[in-house]
Amino acid sequence: QEPLTASMLAAAPPQEQKQMLGERLYPLIHSLHPSMAGKITGMLLEIDNSELLLMLESPESLHSKIEEAVAVLQVHQISEASHKSN
C-alpha cells in the first residue's frame, strides 16, 4: 500500500480526508491496542491532518501519541464510572 501523501489528502474533501487517515491509522493502533483501537483512532482523528500525516511517517511519534490517548481514555473512563456511581 503506497504511503498517504499530503497531495492525496488535498485532492479529497475534508470528510474523506479524515476517513483516509483513519483507515491508515486504525490497523497500526489495532496492532497495539485491539480493544481500544476504535476509540483511540477516533481521538487521534481530532488532531490536525498535517500532524496525523507526520505521525504516519514516524512510528515513534505515532506510538507516543497512542500512549497519550490511552492514558486520556483511561482517565475518561474512570471519570465516567465515578459519574455513574454518584
Partner: peptide, 26 residues
C-alpha cells in the same frame, strides 16, 4: 453535560464513515 462525554471520543470503525467530523471546526 454528561450526555456528550458518553459518546466521546467518536469511535472510528474501518469501512464506516467516521462520526466525529462535524465536531471539528474547519
Amino acid at each position: 453535560n454528561g450526555s456528550s462525554s458518553v459518546n466521546w471520543p467518536p469511535e472510528f470503525r474501518p469501512g464506516e464513515p467516521w462520526k466525529g467530523y462535524p465536531n471539528i471546526d474547519p
